[in-house]
């Protein structure tokens, strides 16, 4: 398993745990006297699960197991692969931190955090598509 795949898969496991913790905390809201602001974690819960866990696990396994791009570059561009990892994770963390902060303190002028998160995740997704496209080929 290549190093980048190990980073993707181990990170995805951490996001799975994080997503389920957030889900559990949100569920406890109906049982314990927790702050009402926790409802703002809904989008973070969904995206920790679907981007951090599901998509990131897929990205790691695809990078590892899809047909070779070429003999010289079996996994396509390693740089694009690492860019995917860095941008996706930077964007997701910015979102997960920024979204509740903005919900709790809308006057703080932190909207740029979400704009930056959006840009990072979008570029990360496009880098993955670009690097994977050439590896989808008939035998």
């Amino acid at each position: 398993m290549p190093p980048l795949t190990r980073w993707f898969v181990k990170s995805s496991l951490i996001y799975l745990i994080a997503a389920l913790i957030v889900g559990a905390v949100m569920a406890l809201q109906g049982v314990l006297p927790l702050p009402a602001g926790l409802a703002a974690l809904g989008p973070a819960y969904v995206h920790l699960f679907m981007v951090g866990w599901v998509s990131q696990l897929i990205f790691g396994v695809v990078y590892w197991m899809f047909p070779k791009y070429s003999r010289a570059k079996p996994r396509g561009s390693e740089g694009l692969g690492w860019a995917t990892y860095g941008l996706l994770n930077a964007g997701l963390i910015l979102r997960v931190v920024g979204e509740p902060l903005i919900a709790l303190r809308p006057e703080a002028g932190l909207g740029w955090l979400l704009a930056l998160a959006a840009l990072c995740q979008w570029l990360g997704g496009l880098a993955f598509v670009l690097n994977t496209w050439g590896r989808v080929k008939e035998k």
């Binding site: 979102r95 932190l110 909207g111 979400l114 704009a115 998160a117 995740q121 979008w122």
Partner: peptide, 9 residues
């Protein structure tokens, strides 16, 4: 990304 950007800015 468009929706998230729009949420922040």
């Amino acid at each position: 990304a468009l929706m998230l950007f729009n949420k922040g800015v």
